[in-house]
């Protein structure tokens, strides 16, 4: 990704500063099964990190631990300088740790506009306002309009989301996450279910927005081509452990990664 490469100086600079997210020896057991087995990683707010690994490597479990959907068996998660290991899901979101889902999670019986506006209002923690009309709330309306423009969703603004094509639903899901003004976004297969021709467009939209807003990205992806083109760094997981954590070329050429992930088929 060209934008990233020209930014490489700032990347090295920031690499010495505090990571936005740090997991220390994070572990998750389901009964006898160890899904995540002591993962220690650091993520920065100016990089895009791809997570790869075969099925059952613990990728989704690891992101669920980060978002708080699952509780830790052991280990610590530090976000933006604070220990958030025991923090409730919605509180992590309010701090700027936002995730999106493999299957778009949107509000089907609301319009595209309302979907995004609801996220804007939630970020401003204005859910409590009883006696004002949302369709007259200029501040959130203007912000919603800017977001719709940014993600090319203006033409769908007044449509109910249930009839939207899958690719648009994906973009809407991402737009709603951006409305939360995250510091770090965790994307679980952002292009799953999207037609192969659209995949790059979806990734471009997401990464461009992330760069523009200075948001760190972590994404799980099965498509190695996408991983290679859009990641600044790749983390390879295998059986709940970190197999490799390096720049894309190094990871792709690593013997272990080739043996366990690339050849095994993903």
């Amino acid at each position: 990704m060209s934008t990233r490469e020209t930014d490489s100086t700032s990347t090295t600079q920031n690499a010495s500063t505090e990571p936005i997210l740090r997991t220390e020896n994070v572990r998750k057991e389901f009964g006898n099964l160890v899904a995540v087995d002591g993962v220690s990683l650091e993520f920065y707010d100016d990089e895009i990190v791809g997570i790869i690994g075969p099925n059952g490597a613990g990728k989704t479990t690891y992101t669920n631990l980060i978002s708080g959907a699952l509780s830790l068996t052991d280990g610590t998660i530090v976000f933006d300088g604070d220990d958030i290991s025991d923090l409730r899901k919605y509180k992590r979101v309010r701090r700027g740790l936002v995730r999106s889902f493999q299957i778009p999670q949107i509000y089907d019986e609301l319009t595209v506009f309302e979907n995004v506006q609801s996220s804007v209002l939630s970020r401003k923690q204005e859910n409590n306002r009883l006696f004002s009309l949302t369709h007259r709330d200029t501040a959130s309306i203007e912000e919603t309009e800017r977001l719709l423009e940014m993600f090319n969703l203006e033409s769908h603004a007044d449509e109910h989301t249930e009839h939207l094509p899958h690719g648009v639903r994906k973009i809407l899901d991402v737009a709603m996450s951006f409305a939360l003004r995250p510091k770090l976004m965790v994307l679980d297969e952002p292009t799953s279910g999207v037609g192969s021709r659209e995949k790059n467009a979806v990734m471009e939209t997401i990464t461009d927005a992330a760069v523009e807003r200075n948001i760190g990205l972590i994404f799980i992806e099965h498509d190695m081509e996408l991983i290679r083109s859009y990641s600044d760094r790749i983390v390879a997981l295998h059986e709940g452990r970190v197999l490799d954590d390096d720049d894309p070329a190094a990871v792709m050429n690593s013997e272990a990664v080739n043996q366990f992930i690339l050849e095994g088929g993903v």
């Binding site: 899901k89 999670q105 939630s122």
Partner: peptide
């Protein structure tokens, strides 16, 4: 109001509402 919209968010998709 934003409060009413919040209730609809919960009705429509709890996961997303919480993740907002």
């Amino acid at each position: 109001s934003p409060f009413g919209l919040t209730l609809k968010m919960i009705r429509e998709n709890e996961t997303r509402a919480e993740m907002s």
